[in-house]
Nucleic acid binder design. Structure first.
Lengths: 121, 121
DNA sequence: TTTAATGCAAATACTTTGCAGGAAA
DNA sequence: TTTCCTGCAAAGTATTTGCATTAAA
């Protein structure tokens, strides 16, 4: 594991959830670290190969990464103003696990988001 | 719904599962239909907007499409081969409703997908 | 010195958009 | 005519690769 990979892991720890290559890149720059996007991609690829990161896809096809085994949360997003609340998804975790095992799927992951209009809008 | 959209629907009926834009394009060509890839993309986009198709992503980020049933359901998708199972999400519906009301959100909608590797892969 | 890591630029793959010509109403 | 549909070519975005430079061992 080289320096870039350590940096990427550190950022993802700080983020505590999913982030795309570009987001990680920008966080590193903001951090004062000097890196190229290429290096981020290479670090991410290597970390996924080593099974230290999970890789999923956003709806628009962009790849997003997360530390393996990290407990994650979901979002409640306002369709109008974009305000976002992080919520626990205990029920969903169980649902995903049950459904997956019912149909014989392994290495299971999931995405879930709730959209609505917040009380201010 | 115009001619191209009808053609796309017909192909997806024949396929009986997911297909990417390129796959649909090639099937149409093999069929003797003369179409451009651009038109396929436009038809797909329009059908997704009209909620006649579900759109998901393969592991490599390519979009895949398929006819969607009318009832609200969720998907259990194989990250490798794209095989998909439609599943009921009773638990999720409740979770979404509860979370939304807890935080004062209304006009609530949600997305939820489970990813894994199916028993054949 | 020998190997591994880096980053720019170019290449690739998927998808969207601008635009002009053609079909349909 | 007026509007919609098409498809080529160009643009856009995410990601990967070639290659020469640099850092590390």
């Amino acid at each position: 594991m080289n320096k870039s990979e350590v940096k990427v892991i550190a950022i993802l720890e700080r983020v505590g959830g999913f982030a795309s290559a570009k987001e990680i890149y920008q966080l590193l720059l903001k951090n004062g670290d000097s890196v190229g996007l290429t290096t981020i991609y290479r670090a991410l690829q290597s970390l996924v190969d080593d099974k230290l990161l999970d890789q999923l896809r956003r709806e628009d096809g962009e790849a997003i990464y997360r530390l393996c085994g990290e407990s994650h949360h979901h979002h409640l997003v306002c369709k109008k103003c974009g305000e976002t609340v992080e919520i626990e998804g205990g029920a969903i975790e169980k649902w995903a696990k049950n459904m997956a095992s019912e149909f014989g799927f392994r290495e299971v992951d999931h995405t879930a988001e709730i959209f609505g209009i917040c009380s201010n809008c």
